[in-house]
Design a protein around this nucleic acid. Sequence first.
DNA 1: CTGAAAGCGCTAACAC
DNA 2: GTGTTAGCGCTTTCAG
Lengths: 347, 347
Amino acid sequence: MTRQTGRGAASSTPRSVDVARLAGVSQKTVSRVLNGERYVSEDVRRRVLQAAEDLGYRMNNAARALASGRTRSIGVVTLGTALYGPASLLMGIERAVRDTGYALRVVNTVEGDPAGVAGAVGSLLEQGVDGIVVSEPIDEGTSMAELSVDVPVLVIGAPSPFATAHPVTSGGGADLLTRAATQHLLDLGHLTVHHLSGPPRWFAARDRLAAWRAALAAHGASEPPVVEGDWSAASGYAAGRRLAADPSVTAVFAANDDMAIGLIRALAEAGRRVPDDVSVVGFDDIPVAAYVTPPLTTVRQPFDAVAQEGLKRLLHAIENPDADPLPPSDPPVDLVVRSSTAPPPHR
Amino acid sequence: MTRQTGRGAASSTPRSVDVARLAGVSQKTVSRVLNGERYVSEDVRRRVLQAAEDLGYRMNNAARALASGRTRSIGVVTLGTALYGPASLLMGIERAVRDTGYALRVVNTVEGDPAGVAGAVGSLLEQGVDGIVVSEPIDEGTSMAELSVDVPVLVIGAPSPFATAHPVTSGGGADLLTRAATQHLLDLGHLTVHHLSGPPRWFAARDRLAAWRAALAAHGASEPPVVEGDWSAASGYAAGRRLAADPSVTAVFAANDDMAIGLIRALAEAGRRVPDDVSVVGFDDIPVAAYVTPPLTTVRQPFDAVAQEGLKRLLHAIENPDADPLPPSDPPVDLVVRSSTAPPPHR
DNA sequence: CTGAAAGCGCTAACAC
DNA sequence: GTGTTAGCGCTTTCAG
């Protein structure tokens, strides 16, 4: 009941030879038909397809990969977290990959593991992938420089910390979103905007921090000290207690919605009304954002657009190894104004 | 610059033969060492490992799979959604798989695609997986009966709608959680508990509905009509508007936290205070649950425990094909009581 | 348009 | 303990 050579009466799963025999053609012709190659007569094509169907034939991808050197699969390195951002991006990547005929292999990294991304990439390379997308990595202080990565790599959400043979560029566009959020607050008349940041080891947190700074500077606003969170609502709550004690804060940009929600709760408990006394903008537009109290003003991350755009570039690099990489394009900015923002209170 | 046989001066990536040559042993010995087989002298083992390291050797898994008939990877069929439940379960599965030496292949299904799960399973089979986990499927009216699945399948969150050669059982344990939630409300003194359900095509929604019914029946409480949602906060809000108009509702069990949050907002807007007038229990314990207004009483889903438990059983079935399947065990119940529940108002 | 031969890089039996 | 010999099921030349 173990391994059986197709030989004999054994009824193991059918091989392409079996299909060939049934269709009365050579094995190579089956291969041609199944790969959609040209120069196959309609008649033969139909017969082969019919035979394959009848047998319930399913191609062995290991053999295909071994012979062709390509696996038709792309690997994803992502964070082992259900945080809305990373999880949504992963789904977006899956969706973007699905219709391309590539399969997806997923490896998660663990926060705090210094070998994280490099190890994950290594394991993907070993499994055999034609391309890799690294989604929202964390800076663990290690580069992939010493890893010999010989496939294109797309890095989403990080500047470009990876040195690879086939660099593909990065993407994300958080700065536009952050600027929109900060600008919104400034336009409302706030003198400045405080920032509740994510953990600085996350590139995403750094990006938003930098973009917030830039927006403030462009407006000539002074830059208040940053309050640091860890993406969780609990950390937002803790930050909120501190911020509530400072009467000069009238506007806060939180680096994600969860923290914004925790922040708002702390503010409310401290008797500072949102948005009457303090305005708060979040980041992500999580599903419940419109239904919390007060409904949260936030910027929606265009996960699907980012994933699709990035994947298009990655596939281009895979399939046209010698061509120039496709230029990145900016994802759409979608500021969703709800009820957590308002002009500053009168003095 | 394309495909090169190791022959000649070409510097393609190293093969196990190259390692063998460098270590001065046969290729088979390299294979032995790398697979951790016994009966290899310490000296040889060290030399091989060193040579592999020096060359930056990485095993070709396609070849390994082709020769051995095993891919050492397990496939996951999941919903293409960032909903907290399915996404968390996926992460749990990845985490559970990671330390087992298996790789993960992920295929999403799309809601509304009748060929969904069967198609996804087929594509995984084609890629070659040693086992499959189907996570929280939706009933699309199609069974996998006609698919010849010759690997163990673990179904999480569905009764057991799949007929496979190696059925592995299902898991989830939603009924215990739901009963705890319903019971909590009943214990508080509510005469009955309304239910805001998920879409009935989801097995998870049906499970919770059935468990709620059972809990009510066990308590001798009357069963009010079910209000149906679609997991979204928006649908919870819509349901809330209807429920708010009925003064007899004093307690609601929502099938997930998002809907509970939308529900609470609608109730609040209608002037019905939570928990003073109406108590609400959610399901999942999403990250912001503790920070919305009021902090949400909910049951925490033990995603990691469910994933680990299920995977242990799946791997057992993979590695001991002739042994009896491991019996399922119930995951822990964790009712998190916060401020959205209270005794019913006095009449 | 179609077929025959020769591997892809590894593991499985068996010998030594 | 270690090496030899055959393939795994495809794709790739290169002939027809």
